[in-house]
Design a protein around this nucleic acid. Structure first.
Length: 603
DNA sequence: GTTAGGG
DNA sequence: CCCTAAC
């Protein structure tokens, strides 16, 4: 029982473990010797960015580590004192539990370590710790190491200094602070710099740091000396760890501190934060520039599909199952599961990610599109359509035609696409072979069944709009290909859009759609938005070599007249939509230009 | 339901 | 143009 509680306890701390800056916190609440293991591991980490550390800070850090080691020793003693014969095995279990995610997350954590606030719950927890181990003083186990051994040769795990709350004085309302001030506050709170420019993020972090909790509801604080008082409620919180008063450590019967409520909450948040940071700092190997730009953008967490596909890579089974499903063609021996993964992730010519693999089906050597996991939305829809309707060609064709017409609406202009043809060649032989096939695999089944049927089917699928992924392309007059659903933007549409934006403002897409594009049923507000995005890009891209005005390296698309682009840019600048990467220099230069080129009657 | 942003 | 998270 004891061991179990320790394990649970440890699990709680696991997420935090990987962050070196967090070591103090995690050891103090870890209640197991795995803290030691982590510390050791920590020592092994080579820090990628070995900035110079000022000796004072270093010393402070070393003191810090020693302090931690002290705690570790105590913990160790405690742990061993529990006397359970299972102690050693428990240790192993704990360790393996930790090491697995650790390895995977290492690279993330290196970045993460500078993003998670350095918490110092120790001072509060320490009393309960020492108190409890007073009763249970046992021998120091063989696992323990003298502090020096660990400290020696160890590089400081992060360039943090101790938080300096003295820098924070009086009343702070994070909402009113500029980024710069937030940075100051951040530094004072966590003892380190940050380059993140996202106010929300900064406020949250600081708020969490100050309250030492996940509570970010308050952004106003009153700092007195080294203590903070949450504005409004809780007048008398005593100190930066005041919030602990609300969440006292839960102590089990043995007096071992376990996760306390606040920390549980905290850990709950960690995975999310990991994603968030991963997102934010991905590719952060480069420079702060990217980071800053990203921070300004809306933060997106990875999509489910992304997560799915990521995890998918790791699960060999599914691939193997795929292999089997794909018909054991005997050639599979050539492909190891691993390389197969890579093979599978292919991008089709249509630009859409279609997972295909070359397989010799019946020696035909055709490309078989397949999906290792069910795609969302459309494919399923199509499949349902296939299933739902009786495979009598009439019903099928009718349904598809209906869909096609539905999808298109009737365009005011340029409405001469041969719609009915699209639905005419329906794979009628896709009968109910897949009845009983697990839903997950249906998509694939359709593919393979069709593919196996005969090759003409496959061709047919490729030309049939409603098959596969809708990756259907038609050749354009200019030699390129374009998706069948694509409807080129006409100049008048573009102008309407520009006008709409100038009138209602970029971002009011639905409004623009409603008011300016009411008659264009096939342009959705999203389309408008997308087009505007492209216009923006174009307008800011092609300015410099403006001399020839019609510098034409076009890819077949209708070139947008320079005047329009100029107006786009003007609007963009007015509405502060200047893409961040086409940064100041360019804009500054061109802005001057615009002054001259202006007065052409726009706006 | 709309918008932003990635694909 | 699609998809989907964020709003």
């Amino acid at each position: 029982m004891e061991v179990e509680s320790l394990l649970i306890d440890d699990r709680c701390g696991k997420h935090v473990v990987a962050d070196p800056g967090q070591t103090v916190g995690c050891i103090s609440n870890e209640g197991s010797s795995s803290g030691m293991a982590q510390l050791k591991r920590l020592e092994g980490w080579s820090q990628p960015e070995n900035k110079k550390v000022d000796p004072d800070k270093l010393n402070g850090r070393l003191e810090y580590i020693e302090e931690m080691l002290q705690k570790v020793k105590e913990e160790e003693r405690l742990y061993i004192a529990c006397g359970s014969p299972d102690c050693s095995s428990a240790y192993v279990i704990v360790d393996s539990q930790c090491s697995d995610p650790h390895d995977k997350l290492l690279h993330i954590d290196e970045k993460l370590q500078c993003e998670i606030p350095l918490q110092e719950p120790v001072p509060l927890l320490a009393p309960s710790l020492s108190e409890s181990h007073l009763n249970q003083s046992g021998s120091v186990g063989e696992c323990s190491h003298p502090p020096d051994e660990l400290v020696a040769g160890g590089s400081p795990s992060s360039i943090t200094t101790k938080p300096d709350f003295s820098r924070l004085k009086g009343e702070i309302c994070l909402d009113n602070l500029s980024i710069k001030e937030l940075h100051e506050t951040f530094k004072a709170t966590f003892g380190r710099e940050t380059t993140v420019k996202d106010k929300q993020w900064l406020k949250r972090r600081i708020s969490m740091g100050l309250t030492n909790s996940c509570d970010v509801s308050t952004t106003s604080f009153i700092i007195k000396g080294n203590k903070f008082v949450k504005k409004g409620n809780e007048e008398g919180c005593n100190g930066i760890y005041g919030s602990f008063a609300k969440d006292p450590p839960i102590v089990n019967q043995k007096g071992l501190p376990t996760c306390h409520v606040g920390q549980l909450d905290y850990h709950k948040v960690v995975p999310e934060r990991r994603l968030e940071n991963h997102n934010l700092d991905d590719n952060s190997g480069s420079d702060d520039h990217q980071k800053e730009q990203r921070a300004a953008k809306r933060v997106r967490k990875p999509t489910k599909r992304y997560i799915e596909e990521l995890s998918e890579v790791e699960s060999k089974e599914s691939n193997e199952r795929l292999l089997n499903l794909a018909k054991n063609s005997g050639h599979d021996g050539l492909i190891s599961p691993k390389s197969h993964v890579r093979l599978v992730r292919h991008v089709s010519s249509g630009g859409r990610t279609v997972i295909t693999r070359l397989d010799s089906l019946g020696g035909s050597g055709i490309q078989v599109p397949c999906v290792s996991r069910v795609r969302r939305s459309r494919p399923r829809k199509n499949f349902m359509a296939l299933l739902k309707f009786n495979p009598s060609s009439m019903g099928m064709a009718a349904a598809l035609v209906e869909k096609a017409l539905d999808d298109h609406g009737f365009p005011p202009d340029d409405g001469n696409e041969n719609r009915v043809l699209k639905a005419s060649s329906t794979p009628e032989h896709v009968h109910h072979q897949f009845v009983g096939v697990p839903e997950k695999d249906k998509q694939f089944s359709v593919m393979s069944v069709v593919g196996l049927g005969n090759n003409t089917d496959l061709k047919c699928m490729n030309s049939n709009e409603d098959s596969d992924d809708n990756v259907v392309t038609v050749p354009t007059s200019k030699g390129g290909i374009r998706r069948k659903h694509h409807r080129a933007w006409t100049l008048s549409e573009v102008m309407k859009l520009v006008e709409g934006v100038s009138r209602y403002g970029a971002g009011r897409w639905s409004e623009i759609k409603r008011l300016a594009f009411a008659s264009y049923s096939y342009r959705t507000s999203v389309d408008l938005k997308d087009k505007w995005r492209n216009l923006l890009k174009a307008s800011f891209a092609q300015t410099p070599p403006d001399t020839g005005m019609n510098s034409r390296k076009n890819t077949g698309a209708m070139p947008i007249p320079t005047p329009i682009l100029l107006k786009v840019r003007e609007l963009a600048e007015m509405q502060a939509q200047v893409p961040p990467n086409l940064s100041l220099t360019k804009v500054a230069g061109s802005a001057r230009k615009i002054v001259h080129e202006k007065q052409t009657g726009f706006l």
